[in-house]
Design a binder for these strands. Structure first.
Lengths: 343, 343
DNA sequence: AACTCCTACGTCAACGTTGACGTAACCGGC
DNA sequence: GCCGGTTACGTCAACGTTGACGTAGGAGTT
């Protein structure tokens, strides 16, 4: 087989030579532009086929007036996380339909990495970026945006202006979840949340507070655990809750890994039939657990589609005012959230 | 904010003008090449910073001798599938460490889509591709490979020569799983597999046959169900198995979605404590189900790392003979696979 | 028959960058 | 004071493509 054959890729020049026309005519034929006769078009096509010619999009975009690379960047926290993966897939699908490919990267919620990836994307002259912003300050994102890069934030809004974003009904759905638990008679409802630097965590916590207030319940600070990043930390925190003198009778777990950790502890302590749980974010197999887990499910394909639509529109020159699209989440009752308080 | 500001990106020419040097000197400074004095270097760096200059990798790679775009393509079946997502993440991590970004796409196991994506990647002059080949013929892949594109196949080997690939111990691990079930006294072990066009399905089935033979069991054709693509189809097939006069006492489910479907049916019929199950491919929360699911777990990070290493080496000009790397999978006992046959 | 207009091409330069090569200044050695 | 070598620049062309513009020939109009 061809090991380093170092065979040069054929160019329009080669095709032109073989077809006996000028380079410009080849360009016209390849791009389907008018100004090439039928017979010449056939000759050029045939020549391109025999040589195995493939257009060079990088050279083309360097020269073209619009400068498009037909490529966007997608920076999410962790592409192996089911939520991120589903979102990537949704964005990718819609982009591809417009002939746009996706350069994907994981930021690990790390500002340095996020900045480096932004620079790498910018060096490749992507047409725009879809970003799940790392928690905390957004200096690098703002800087990139101010350079003129079309940008859409997903999952978390920008802390700076002039930028589109797509989020879900974090606060409202959290409030609804808590109200549902309260309606079942629960008065000691715990909150277990992800890192406090994350906007989503804050919103969900606010929704929790609103729910308590609306239900006429008082907040017990002991029942609030935050900064739970990962399953292991969530397990520890959940265990602590049930070591309290007056443990919770219901849990609102504000992120999918937290939900998983909590479920594990409940099962270990054989509390899974008595303690109600509603989680934010669906996760695979939530319906197969015992009990099946009631969750607030984000419309991930909807979020991805909206993000893709927005970035593609901006790239196409849409200069209408920035949009903050909110895609509704829905409560999926499966059992764990329907356990009533012991009266 | 800057709506279509149409501000031109600064180029080396602009930096050169501001620093009062030639374009070539700017190039030297930006690329850290020798031949620029200390004072000039400082002036150029300062000018680049004031202008917000960003190198243009597409122009650079067009002109450079090595022609590298520092970008690879990754085409998997479905980026939202946990297995694919984890693999993408592993490849991405290792590529990024070498300054290489990843253009990712889902082929949906569709030849047309796979071919279109290959053409799109080739138009962007990626340095190489990592592909999970769509089932059936591999004409497009072979064609692309023969053009000289560095290529590594993952999960499934090529049907053509001269190409690296990375797979797991499909056959051996499947045989081991069946032998384990047989050792627990099971004589009616069913096989539930994904699409037969997939190489992995075939290998796992062969391993199943080998296991039966080695255990001295005879194959019962009725207990073999293939072409189960997706959870729903797997559920139907499983249900049929338990409507047989002599149903299986153990299941070997050869793909993760199939395992999920089977578990669902077992639970619905309250058989989950009596029928043994070993699944191929781990999946999130397998340990939280009741019973926890015994699986053959592939070393996904290991596969991704190996694939990344191979493609990067080939891109760097490694012309050693093609490699078929096999990354060992391991059996993870969790409970469902340790249920003994009723004697 | 002279005119305009259109079609089907071709020529040229430029996109942003780098490889090849040129050159002026300076150094050390004799 | 001249030579060879080195350092620190600069000039030029080219990577593959396309926008701007030129032109030859034919069709249609007056």
């Amino acid at each position: 087989m061809d090991q380093a054959g170092e065979r040069r890729e054929p160019t329009m020049r080669d095709v032109a030579a073989l077809a006996g026309v000028s380079i410009k005519t080849v360009s016209r034929v390849i791009n389907g532009l008018p100004g090439a006769g039928a017979e010449v078009t056939d000759r050029v096509r045939a020549a391109a086929r025999t040589l195995g010619y493939r257009p060079n999009l990088t050279a083309s975009s360097l020269r073209r007036a619009d400068r498009r690379s037909a490529t966007i960047g997608v920076l999410f926290e962790d592409l192996s996380n089911p939520f991120d993966a589903a979102l990537l897939r949704a964005v990718e699908d819609h982009a591809r339909r417009s002939g746009v490919l996706v350069l994907a990267g994981s930021t690990e919620d790390d500002h340095t990495l996020q900045r480096e990836l932004l620079v790498s994307l910018s060096a490749r002259r992507v047409d725009g970026v879809v970003v799940m912003a790392a928690g905390g300050h957004q200096d690098a994102l703002q800087h990139e945006r101010e350079r003129g890069t079309p940008m859409v934030l997903v999952d978390r809004p920008p802390t700076f202006g002039g930028t589109d974003c797509v989020t879900t009904t974090n606060r409202d759905s959290s409030r609804a979840a808590v109200l549902k638990l309260a309606a079942l008679g629960h008065r000691d409802i715990a909150f277990l949340g992800d890192r406090r630097t994350l906007w989503t965590s804050q919103e969900r916590y606010t929704g929790y507070l609103e729910g308590l207030a609306q239900a006429g319940l008082t907040l017990r600070e002991q029942l609030v655990r935050t900064d739970l990043h990962g399953v292991a930390v969530a397990e520890t925190a959940t265990a602590e809750l049930f070591d309290l003198d007056r443990p919770p009778t219901a849990l609102f777990t504000a992120q999918n890994l937290v939900t998983v950790g909590a479920m594990r502890v409940l099962r270990d302590r054989d509390l899974h039939r008595r303690v109600a749980v509603i989680g934010f974010d669906d996760f695979p197999l939530a319906d197969l657990l015992d009990p099946a887990v009631t969750v607030v499910r984000q419309d991930v394909p909807g979020i991805g589609r909206k993000a893709a639509e927005l970035i593609l529109a901006r790239i196409d020159g849409d200069t209408s005012p920035p949009v903050h699209a909110v895609v509704p989440a829905s409560l999926v009752p499966r059992g764990s959230g329907e356990i009533a308080a012991l009266s």
